[in-house]
Design a protein around this nucleic acid. Structure first.
Lengths: 220, 220
DNA sequence: TAATATTTTTAGACTAGTCTAAAAATATTT
DNA sequence: AAATATTTTTAGACTAGTCTAAAAATATTA
């Protein structure tokens, strides 16, 4: 059985590996874990001894197969709990993360499967992120940043890059929520802000910052 | 914010105070917490410094008002989660305790109230134990052990004294579950075992041990 | 009352996880 | 290639929580 801290480290490393490709460095882990580089070195030595990652001094770390499986289990639990909080308990999508961060550590071989069934085997969490299956497989579809679309193109909001509370609240306030269709009307050459038309709403302006953090499934 | 260990100690002390009246001794706490007396002494010193209990060497401990409130919050959370596992995720009543022991530590000012609402503000958990309200008040009714009833008396199964997994499984196997009416048919002078008639079932024998651990609401 | 048994506390050692400061290694700049 | 900057590791100190063994206090028995 692994400690909460061990599980959190493995999850953080998995996320960094997803972004950067292969190897993950000490400072990057320290930043996500909100701790000091020395603490990271201490912990990754232990995790290496437990065969969850492979590590050589000054060479960064990579999760082992065991580590990756553990990470995917954590992500599955996290996203299923977020879905429960959102769908069943009416939490808003910017409130669910911190609670799911705690719930994901519950040790029970059966609980998360029962929750999965209870929720109707959802494929995505409230932010549009894919929920890994019991077998650890993630079903991904190709998503595009709003900033990557051209004038006249359409898409359906299906994810967010930035999960911060403030950002999610900003999106909700502007009706930029999962499932909404949008069309790119025009783009400013000056600051790359966009004028977009939201399905069921009036055209609005969004900054380039927002455009780079909202993900779409392309449509027509 | 309190640690999991601190919360567990407070809960254990509350339960012991409920049984024994006022003061609780070190060995009793050690037994519930499955730890050594020395560890208990160390911890109750800390909890005393945090004003959760009052403590004098060799004199046992008593929870303060703050400690009692915290204990009732923990019990409320525990029982609501047990109810969720049982009612919504179809866990059996002997499986819920260990999972609820973990879930009760989730820190969120809003979560348990949303869960309470989601469950329809239940008054009892799957074992018949009363669920404290948000205000900390427990609604109790008078229950009797089966062994306290006379021949010909009736009652409805409304609680259990012993919460062990094996005992709960034994009860379920014998249809001795919450809500069932029973009538005392006869009693053996030899070993105090009882012959009882269960509503909707055939008469069965139960040992004195079982009779002392099943609680009834009296009826007619 | 004294001897014995039991309970509780204290002292010191341990692990898990954190930190700061300094040392070691690597990367970058000149 | 040398100097400088940055990253990473190591050493030692800290807290939380645990343990064993011994000491202290209380309870029980003779």
């Amino acid at each position: 059985m692994y400690s909460f801290t061990e599980e959190n480290y493995i999850k953080a490393i998995y996320k960094l590996q997803e972004k950067s490709g292969i190897s993950v460095n000490t400072n990057a882990i320290a930043e996500i874990m909100q701790t000091k580089a020395a603490s990271v070195t201490d912990m990754i030595k232990k995790l290496s001894e437990k065969k969850l990652l492979s590590y050589a001094k000054y060479k960064g770390v990579e999760l082992t197969e065991t580590g990756r499986k553990m990470a995917l289990e954590m992500i599955r639990k996290h996203r299923l709990w977020e879905t429960f909080l959102y769908d069943k308990l009416n939490f808003s999508w910017d409130e669910v993360h911190d609670i799911a961060e705690q719930l994901e550590h519950i040790k029970s071989t059966k609980l998360i499967d029962c929750l999965d069934e209870f929720l109707g085997f959802p494929e995505n969490d409230p932010h549009g992120d894919p929920i890994p299956g019991k077998n650890g497989l993630i079903q991904r579809i190709e998503l595009y940043k709003v900033s990557e679309l051209g004038i006249g193109e359409f898409g359906v909001i299906s994810g967010v890059v930035n999960h911060s509370s403030l950002f999610l609240q900003h999106l909700e306030k502007n009706q930029l929520v999962l499932g909404k269709g949008i069309e790119i009307v025009s783009k400013s050459d000056f600051d790359q802000s966009l004028r977009i038309k939201i399905e069921g709403g009036i055209p609005i302006m969004i900054s380039n910052e927002v455009a780079r953090n909202v993900l779409l499934k392309k449509s027509r």
